[in-house]
């Protein structure tokens, strides 16, 4: 198991701090995407954009060891892609997506 040198670890820690500091901004983006998606009635284009955002967030947060956020973001991505295509758009599936969204928001805030 390779381990980082002390200097490299310090750099990673610094990056992680910066990454954590970018959460308010990321949260803002996420909220904007969500509101647009919700207001326009869950159009495919908006859902795709939301999925892309979450895809990216899942990759980066996990790389910094924030596995819960990564998992929460990935669930949204998967639901946008697979969930709706199998269940279709209805109250239950929208509630499910909203629950996933709230879960991610919570984890980003905490």
């Amino acid at each position: 198991m390779p381990e980082l040198s002390v200097e490299a670890q310090k750099k990673v820690d610094k990056l992680k701090k910066a990454y954590l500091n970018s959460f308010p901004e990321k949260l803002n983006q996420l909220q904007l995407l969500w509101e647009r998606t919700e207001n326009k009635g869950y159009l495919e284009g908006d859902l795709n954009e939301l999925a892309a955002f979450c895809h990216k967030l899942a990759g980066s947060s996990g790389s910094y060891g924030l596995l819960e956020i990564s998992q929460a973001a990935r669930s949204i991505e998967q639901y946008c892609h697979d969930g709706f295509s199998s269940v279709g758009l209805n109250k239950a599936s929208i509630d499910e997506l909203r629950a996933l969204y709230i879960n991610l928001v919570k984890r980003l805030v905490m």
Partner: peptide
């Protein structure tokens, strides 16, 4: 394109 990852990857690669 994710800047958050680019920096991390650079550190890892330099370390190697």
């Amino acid at each position: 394109d994710d800047l958050d990852l680019v920096e991390l990857l650079k550190i890892y690669l330099n370390e190697l």
